[in-house]
């Protein structure tokens, strides 16, 4: 491979990374917004958030991309720059999956924590911000790591629309060299390395967040239940201690 072709691949990596970061930001915002809405006290809010997740989890990411690229401009007159169109389609789709993670983690927080917040007359938003989220977020991280790798794999789909990401650059190199084994192997390895780095980074983040709420990494809530009661701190609640 010549240096010109490598430049294509490097450009592709850059676009893939941009797309990954932007759509991860959109997906996180959607995930927290919709996920928290699904635990709202008004049924209509919960219902609308539920419809959103089912609709966006129900369709395929590739169909969403086609829809944003071809139907939005015709139907609503919104012609988006390809990068933003890709970001929107991926962010909305993967955000719906993330919303399920957020909802699950929020529901998994010990109900006594929420009740404690009510007893101390916190407002719903204060309860969410100061009590529920700090405990729920560290539990979400392993699932979010998986979702982030899925999102990375999803970014390859925009190449179908001719966006010059990593998968697309592989196509160009294949056409230039009339030979595909080498370039596709390289590109797969590059994707794998990015996924590996993401996984590592997220594990570090999980460790820091869990240290913030006094938990160790790798402990599931289930193991937490079966923890030997050696210290009085963890057992105080279960013994009904009013101390």
């Amino acid at each position: 491979m010549t240096s010109g072709l490598w430049e294509l691949v490097l450009n592709g990596i850059w676009i893939t990374v941009q797309l990954l970061v932007l759509s991860a930001l959109v997906a996180t915002a959607v995930a927290f917004g919709v996920g928290m809405a699904r635990t709202h006290r008004l049924w209509i809010v919960r219902f609308l958030a539920g419809v959103y997740t089912e609709v966006f989890r129900g369709t395929s990411a590739l169909i969403m991309i086609f829809w944003v690229f071809f139907v939005l401009p015709v139907a609503f007159g919104w012609q988006l720059v390809p990068l933003w169109a890709g970001t929107l389609a991926l962010g909305l789709t993967y955000g719906a999956y993330g919303a399920e993670i957020v909802r699950g983690a929020l529901n998994a927080v010990d109900p006594a924590q929420r009740e404690g917040g009510i007893a101390l007359s916190f407002t719903p938003w204060q309860r969410m911000r100061l009590i529920l989220l700090p405990q729920a977020v560290p539990e979400m991280i392993p699932s979010f790591t998986n979702l982030l790798v899925e999102l990375l794999k999803g970014t390859a789909l925009v190449s179908v629309m001719g966006m010059g990401d990593l998968a697309f650059s592989a196509n160009l190199v294949r056409l230039a060299l009339q030979e595909s084994a080498e370039i596709y192997t390289y590109v797969l390895v590059i994707y794998f390395v990015i996924a590996f780095l993401l996984t590592r980074g997220m594990r570090g983040l999980e460790r820091r967040l869990k240290a913030g709420v006094g938990k160790q990494i790798g402990r599931t809530p289930d193991q937490e239940l079966h923890r030997p009661e050696t210290t009085g701190v963890g057992a105080a609640g279960s013994l009904g201690g009013a101390s």
């Binding site: 790798v149 990375l152 794999k153 999803g154 970014t155 390859a156 789909l157 190449s159 179908v160 998968a167 592989a170 196509n171 294949r174 030979e179 595909s180 084994a181 596709y184 192997t185 590109v187 797969l188 994707y191 794998f192 996924a195 590996f196």
Partner: peptide, 22 residues
């Protein structure tokens, strides 16, 4: 692990274009 962490789309192209070469 490698297959799980790389995009299906690229794997598809790999099989579609590389296997005939082999």
């Amino acid at each position: 692990e490698f297959i799980r962490n790389t995009p299906l789309l690229v794997q598809l192209f790999f099989l579609f274009y590389v296997l005939p070469e082999w």
